[in-house]
């Protein structure tokens, strides 16, 4: 009798558990059916960041927020016009974006708008110098993100150039002045240059049109090398920039492999896909209710050094053993 009763209880409990599970899965289905909207905002053109956005989507999928299933990403591009950023930001918020991922030059603009949604920034700059955070562990209100630490790499890139070209004296840093924190990068670069006995100057290229002016300037100044600031602008105009450098036979060093593939002699910088994947972590945490200020700004931990052998040959260069030992990839 007891056994029967117990059995009955057991089956009853099973039933309850099943019922609870059904209810839970239904409620889960209900939540997952409710699409979370996230905005992506940059002042650049769409083409410049395509491959990195793929990494972001991968990251979202890893965080169980696969695009179209858990989360819907609304993409907005300024098409190289920072002036459009406020309008796009407001548009994202009214479209129901619960969070904005803001990249590059758009970041300070969006922060100034003081929107009611959290912001995850993706910046090359020093977030402290740029005013996005008081320290790495203390981002400003409703704001956090990742930094590429571009300024830290400028010195390292000059060091690499000096090792390849021991006679190196003069380097022109080419970049978009709209890029936040570019002045810091410039200062950092100048300091490293002094240590290595290299003089450097900054050539601002605020738009695609200014590249023609840059060509004239470079042809006149003839620096020993060009250090190209890696950002969305540079990616967008990489072919033009590389064409100018090749034409003037000036070697180019930059931060991301995409430039080595486009014709730069070498690149050294963080692994961008890793960082873009990491953005998904911030998105997931914030959507799950963590306050952005509780999430410290993260720096890259993985870096890559890419050499372009073809370009080296065009300069009659042979990479030393030390260079090759350091390289993560050598493009033939």
């Amino acid at each position: 009798m007891l056994v029967t009763l117990e059995k009955e209880m057991h089956s009853r409990r099973e039933f309850l558990v099943m019922a609870a599970c059904t209810a839970a899965s239904q409620s889960f289905a209900a939540t997952s059916a409710r699409m979370r909207r996230v905005g992506w905002l940059t002042a650049q053109q769409p083409g410049s960041l395509t491959s990195y956005l793929e990494a972001l989507r991968q990251g979202l999928a890893e965080q169980k927020l696969a695009e179209g299933q858990g989360v819907e990403v609304l993409y907005r591009y300024g098409e190289d016009d920072v002036g459009r950023v406020p309008e796009l930001a407001h548009d994202l918020v009214t479209s129901g974006a619960e969070l904005l991922i803001v990249q590059g030059a758009a970041i300070p603009v969006v922060i100034k708008l003081d929107l009611p949604v959290p912001i995850v920034f993706v910046t090359s700059a020093d977030p402290i110098a740029a005013g996005f955070a008081k320290s790495l562990t203390q981002p400003i209100d409703n704001c956090t993100g990742v930094t590429f630490m571009a300024f830290e790499f400028l010195g390292k890139r000059l060091e690499i150039l000096k090792e390849i070209f021991p006679t190196l004296r003069h380097v022109t840093v080419l970049g978009n002045p709209l890029h936040p924190g570019s002045s810091i990068e410039r200062a950092s670069s100048e300091e490293a240059g002094r240590r290595l006995g290299i003089s450097s100057d900054f050539l601002a290229t605020p738009s695609g049109d200014s590249l023609e002016v840059a060509r004239t300037t470079l042809a006149h100044s003839r620096p020993d090398a060009i250090s190209l600031l890696p950002d969305g602008f540079a990616i967008a105009h990489r072919q033009t920039i590389m064409a100018i450098a090749t034409e003037l036979r000036i070697p180019v060093i930059s931060g991301w492999p995409v430039f080595a593939q486009a014709g730069a002699l070498c690149t050294y910088g963080p692994r961008l896909p890793v960082i873009y994947r990491r953005i998904a972590y911030f998105v997931a945490r914030i959507l799950n209710g963590t306050r952005p200020s509780d999430l410290p700004v993260e720096r890259p931990t993985q870096f890559e050094f890419v050499l372009n052998q073809t370009v080296a040959r065009s300069f009659n260069l042979t990479f030393s053993r030390a260079m090759l030992a350091r390289a993560d990839e050598v493009i033939e």
Binding site: T301, Q302, F305, R321, A322, A325, R326, A327, D328
Partner: peptide, 16 residues
């Protein structure tokens, strides 16, 4: 000295 440098760079690359 040069061998040590190459080895050190290689090691640095291998140990993230």
């Amino acid at each position: 000295e040069e061998d040590r440098r190459v080895d050190a760079l290689r090691t640095l690359r291998a140990l993230p």
